[in-house]
Amino acid sequence: MNIHNYEKIWLVLSMLLIIGFISTVVYGATAVGIEMVNDEGGTIDSTALDEDDRFSEPRVEKVGEDEYEAYVVARQFIFEPNPIEVPANSTVTFYVTSPDVLHGFEVVGTNANAMVVPGEITELTVEVNEPKEYGILCNEYCGGGHHTMEGKLIVVPEDEFELGDSNDE
């Protein structure tokens, strides 16, 4: 088969491009540790969130040094707790669920963005750095008040951070 030299160059370059695309994604998944949000959070009875000790009282809890868990309920048309306050330079795992319909949980302007499905617990872990205020919004149409459904994620300086009253730590 006679392949023109230029065609060989183009073939090689396109292979390199494909290899480049795949290796950056592999780099992101391994070296950086980027995860996809999946169903690892498990399921829950969406009609009985009150009976679940995580979601009966939506809150932020300390689970280790610089490690926090935030239990968030997204319902028509609010996020609880609001605001979600976490200390700077910590690792935060959000557990988000819904008692009513499908919602979205998007920390605006960031890669933290997931669906909130009734009956499922959406689990996502992020690292927060400097003190900053983020908006949270619902990006799945959830009813008449969808456009007003928003919350706040406030990263406060470590020395100013205190857990809510519901925590006795």
Partner: peptide, 11 residues
């Protein structure tokens, strides 16, 4: 744009 767009979902 992507990796610099903290908060990124990790682990």
């Amino acid at each position: 744009e992507f990796l610099g767009n903290d908060l990124t979902v990790l682990v």
